[in-house]
Amino acid sequence: MLTNILTKEDTHKQLFTMGHTGCSGCAQSMAVKLIMQVLGKNTIATSATGCLEVFSTKFPESSWNIPWIHSLFENSAAIASGIEAALQITGKKDGTTVLSQAGDGGTADIGLQALSGMFERGHDVLYICYDNGAYMNTGYQRSGLTPYDSFTTTSPSGKISFGNNRPKKYMPEIAMAHKIPYTAVASAGYPIDLQKKVKKTLSIKGPKYLQVDVPCVPGWKYEPRYSVKIAQLAVQSGLYPLFEAEYGKITSVKKISKRVPVEEYLKLQGRFKHLFKNEAGKAEIEKIQKIADENIEQYGLL
């Protein structure tokens, strides 16, 4: 799957180039790089406002070697719809992928309406949600995809709080409820699985939804080198089930190869460190373990 990157010159020819201002260890930039390797140059991309947009296109510089457009926070899917419509009517759609990208807030919160509209109208668009579980670009505020008990700057832990008191929104299920041809969840921790899923979207006409777990160094508060490890632990603990679904029905799941307790995942991240301070925190960890257990049961991850 991976294109041959044999020399330094090869690295400079990537469709998503280095030179962007993403944080050291950013899993989102890793995911974008991997995704673009599969999608190829006949791709037109949109990005919602967010980290990716800001760090990849600081005028006059751009990391994109494909046509790319950013408009607003909530309209990535609608912009992509317009692009797809323009390509259809001018007969240029065949052989061109329309990619619509946003973060978790731009997808599941402010951009949900535009996304649902794009699904329902059946545009031939691949929508990718880079899920880092909070509004990282604005400084780690809570979003609808922030996991249970996570510290964010607007759901801080405190004397009487363990952080975000609501479970993560089941966004892939919302996509599946639209009965779109393809929905998948992937992770920056499993690049081959991610690339396989992206490749699959190339053969499917209609709306496709792909959600990718992308750990965030400053937001999740861990050392940059742990980005992949943490992403893998999310999957192995059952907190981030990876699966594929077609027309609303799950068709495959990535089985857990070596099950780990959620504690292994939580303890590496500063956003959960308040759970390790006292007995009450332990009870909270048990609740998170229960979420993981339920996921394992529901998706058949073992």
Partner: peptide, 23 residues
Amino acid sequence: EYVMVESEHSAASVVLGASACGV
């Protein structure tokens, strides 16, 4: 292409995207 959108925000966004394609 007549795109029946779910809001005015998306209507304007659809024409923005299409216009950026040069149509």
